[in-house]
């Protein structure tokens, strides 16, 4: 009975989220008490649905690019050719994590101008770190006997990477992607300060016009998206981990 409760809650959250995005008007009575008279309770300067989709698109593109690059880099520094870079790349990840997302975003503007581009760059750079770190951890902590066995079976280095190392690292890589996505979903809202089309627009409009309902609905949509995506990726991760017997 109790085990089902979280799943039902998540389902409910998804239904409410979709309903809100498709027909925000019907939720107006709920938000009305939060605003002064005459002020709109539902964001009226654009479609919430399209902003949510654009928000997701930005995060998706940035995370996809970050995943590809981070995994490739982690593979590179764990090959014999790249071992010289291994220690340095670890320190760089440590240093990189001290860069605040806002700073990365702000520093990207001079290079590429306003709009979606600086947001993509900031999300990409900030998203690299958890994925790179996790892939590196996974690739360097594989059981020795398994790698030995793969070599002994006559796999080429490439076959070993594709058939053994990467599949075994997958759960940990997915965990990195999950962290990255949650950070990116929140950071993307700040992108609206440099004119990116994301749900941050709703929140900023609320802050500017002192409209609590706007702030709340923008924040809650992002929060709900983050929770659902986090849970979805956790489920995938658990499934992969169970298959490899590591869970």
């Amino acid at each position: 009975m109790r085990a089902w409760a979280p799943t039902i809650l998540r389902g409910l959250l998804l239904v409410v989220l979709i309903a809100f995005l498709l027909s925000p008007g019907s939720f107006e009575p709920l938000l009305k008490p939060l605003v002064q008279q005459n002020a709109p309770a539902i964001y009226n300067q654009g479609s919430l649905l399209s902003l949510a989709l654009l928000h997701l698109r930005t995060v998706f593109i940035a995370t996809l690019a970050a995943t590809i690059i981070a995994v490739l880099l982690a593979i590179l520094v764990t090959r014999p050719f790249g071992t010289e870079f291994l220690a340095l790349s670890r320190s760089l990840v440590n240093i990189g994590q001290t860069f605040p997302p806002v700073a990365v975003l702000a520093l990207a503007v001079p290079a590429v101008g306003f709009g979606e581009k600086p947001t993509l760059i900031a999300l990409f750079l900030y998203g690299l770190l958890p994925i790179f770190e996790n892939t590196l951890t996974a690739l360097t902590n594989l059981p020795r006997s398994v790698i030995e066995a793969a070599r002994g079976a006559g796999m080429t280095n490439f076959q070993r990477l594709m058939q053994i190392e990467l599949p075994l690292s997958l759960p940990v890589i997915v965990a990195g992607i999950r962290l990255s996505v949650v950070i990116s979903l929140a950071t993307a809202t700040i992108g609206s300060t440099v004119a990116a089309k994301t749900l941050g627009e709703v929140i900023i409009a609320g802050l500017q016009s002192n409209n609590l309902a706007f702030v709340l609905q923008g924040g809650l949509i992002v929060g709900a998206l983050a929770v659902l995506i986090y849970d979805g990726l956790s489920a995938i991760e658990g499934m992969l981990a169970r298959r490899t017997g590591s869970a």
Binding site: L185, A186, G200, I203, L207, L212, L216, G219, L220, G223
Partner: peptide, 12 residues
């Protein structure tokens, strides 16, 4: 999971 600008705003 709540974005920082939203949480700041909601607390106002």
């Amino acid at each position: 999971t709540i974005p920082s600008i939203a949480l700041f705003g909601v607390l106002i």
